[in-house]
Simulated scan of single mutants.
Amino acid sequence: MHQPRRRDRRLARRVPPKRARRQSSQPTAAGADVVLVGYFSAKQKDFEALMTSAAAELAARGARVIAQMVQRRGVSDGGVQKMGLPYSSRTLLSHGKVREVAQVCDQAKADAVVFVASLTERQQRVLTAMLGCPAASLSDILAAD
């Protein structure tokens, strides 16, 4: 008689709360102060031009880019072998860079963080929780507007 109750409790814990589902809505760019974050490999030499064009796209949609941050992959000897992979499948960035972005967001009172690279839904949820403001990819914002 006790075993069915345990199974029922375990199943109930696995269901995500409704509040977590609502947080996945995409932020709009109009009137928002955003931090722009880029993730590029060392092979990509024109990353500054990509960041500039992404900032221009956001500005055209009414957003104010208050800070830009870049995570480079493959600059060190150890990173060259794993250049095509993200630092973390949960956050795309390294843990230290996520802390730096969170600090910039807190100091600048940013409304959202926009990543030049595309993010999975899981990465968006994790980054939103870690950064304290909504995280979205540039392609999602451009598609929404």
Rank of each mutant, 00 (worst) to 15 (best):
R122C: 01
D46W: 00
L58G: 07
K18P: 07
R10I: 08
M83Q: 12
A67W: 03
S76R: 06
T91V: 04
Q107K: 14
C105N: 11
A143W: 00
A136M: 01
T28I: 10
A110I: 03
L11A: 13
T120I: 03
E100I: 04
Q81T: 08
Q71A: 15
K109W: 00
A30N: 10
E100M: 12
A135R: 13
V114A: 07
V101C: 07
Y39M: 05
D111R: 01
L92G: 04
R19Y: 00
A110H: 06
R64L: 02
E100S: 13
T128Q: 14
V101T: 11
A55E: 02
S24E: 08
F47I: 04
M1V: 09
G74D: 06
T52R: 15
R72S: 07
T28Q: 13
L50E: 14
R19T: 05
V70H: 04
Y87E: 10
P86K: 08
L36A: 09
K45L: 05
V35A: 05
R6N: 14
D145P: 10
A112W: 06
L138H: 03
A54F: 02
P4R: 12
A112F: 07
Q3S: 12
K97G: 08
R125V: 05
S89I: 09
A60S: 11
L50S: 11
S118E: 09
S25Q: 12
Q81K: 11
A60Q: 13
V34D: 06
V34N: 03
L142T: 01
A29N: 02
T52C: 11
S53N: 09
S89E: 14
V116N: 03
R61V: 03
G74Q: 12
A12M: 07
V104L: 10
Y39E: 02
G62A: 10
R73N: 15
V101R: 07
D145Q: 07
L142I: 08
R13N: 03
K45T: 08
D77P: 15
F115W: 13
L127I: 08
A56S: 07
G78V: 06
V35L: 12
A42K: 09
V75Y: 03
V35G: 03
D33I: 01
E57Q: 14
D77H: 13
S89Y: 10
L58M: 10
D33Q: 13
E100D: 15
A49E: 08
F47L: 11
R13M: 08
L127K: 06
R125F: 04
V114I: 15
V65I: 04
V34S: 08
S53P: 02
A129H: 02
H2I: 07
D46S: 10
P4H: 09
L93W: 04
A143H: 01
S137H: 13
C133W: 05
V65Q: 02
R122Y: 00
G62I: 08
G38Y: 03
Y39V: 14
V104D: 04
Q124D: 01
L11E: 15
R5H: 11
P86N: 10
Y39D: 01
L131V: 05
L131C: 14
V114N: 06
A110K: 12
C105A: 14
G78A: 13
D140L: 00
Q107H: 07
G74L: 06
L142M: 11
C105T: 05
A102G: 14
